[in-house]
């Protein structure tokens, strides 16, 4: 009867969504395109740039901070494998908090359908297939919902390009995204991406009543394999509760020895 909260996450695809291929500047969209077409075009370009990393491993730590400033820590190891079909396979192994140490999660994402997820509970050595239909729930008590963490499949939103505006030292496009999934907790998202490299710098989340619920700020980008931009830090602030979560990534290793067979139930039981 393992904590259901660990279950059902598609988290670390976080890493994938922030993985953006460095790409020579080119016109992203034809000038005569409608705002909807422009928005979709940017989403497609972003997806194309993120492809081809093959696999990576990384370590992630999360600091959860409540309104009073009290902090608690989560640590996990992440392994992601890109597959031919378009979806990814991911493994997450929890190191902290200590009571869930060794708990591991295997996720097979699919472009069209819901993800497949298996949770490994080391105390019983039991593998449980779990439901992946929880979209708006909190991941491990953090301010990240499962839907904030999954690979943002292009087909799962509609888009509207709003404007170009200066951000940091760059120029960013601001695009509105509308989730198609009824289980989403949001009415819309606003996404800031720089025009040169398509890195996401900021996301604003608006709930079903259209109030500004959360803001995600992404920073500390590094370039890997001369192609992939990977964020080092992601900070989510909840404006309604005053709580926040800061995710820090480290020890990225791309194109490791990871194989398809590491992402099976047998591989999952070998985790610790």
């Amino acid at each position: 009867m393992m904590n259901a909260h660990i279950a059902r996450t598609t988290l670390p695809l976080l890493a994938v969504c922030a993985c953006i291929l460095a790409y020579p500047s080119a016109p992203l969209y034809a000038e005569e395109a409608t705002p909807e077409e422009k928005g979709l075009q940017i989403a497609r370009e972003t997806r194309e740039k993120g492809r081809g990393f093959e696999n990576f491993t990384a370590e992630q730590s999360m600091v959860l901070r409540n309104k009073q400033g009290k902090e608690s820590l989560r640590q996990l190891r992440v392994k992601v494998l890109e597959t031919d079909g378009g979806g990814n396979k991911s493994l997450f192994v929890f190191d902290r908090p200590r009571d869930v140490q060794g708990t591991a999660l295997l996720v097979h994402t699919h472009k069209e359908s819901d993800d497949d997820q298996w949770l490994y509970l080391p105390a019983l050595k039991r593998v449980k297939r779990i439901s992946s239909s929880n979209q708006s729930g909190s991941f491990m008590g953090s301010e990240f919902a499962y839907e904030d963490l999954g690979t943002p499949e292009v087909e799962k939103y509609t888009y509207r390009y709003l404007r170009d505006e200066p951000c940091l030292e760059m120029t960013c496009t601001v695009v509105e995204r509308f989730p198609l999934d009824k289980r989403s907790g949001y009415q819309r998202l606003l996404v800031w991406q720089d025009k040169d490299e398509l890195r996401i710098w900021k996301v604003e989340y608006y709930d079903k009543k259209n109030s500004h619920l959360k803001t995600l700020t992404i920073s500390d980008y590094n370039l890997y394999l001369d192609r992939f931009w990977q964020a080092g830090e992601m900070s989510m602030v909840n404006h309604l509760t005053g709580k926040s979560t800061v995710v820090t990534w480290k020890d990225f290793r791309f194109r490791t020895e990871l194989k398809e067979s590491d992402f099976t139930q047998t591989g999952l039981k070998r985790m610790r």
Partner: peptide, 14 residues
């Protein structure tokens, strides 16, 4: 019945 509060303490009841 199973109740998971999904809070920081992972409060869980079955």
């Amino acid at each position: 019945v199973r109740l998971a509060l999904n809070d920081t303490q992972s409060t869980n009841l079955i």
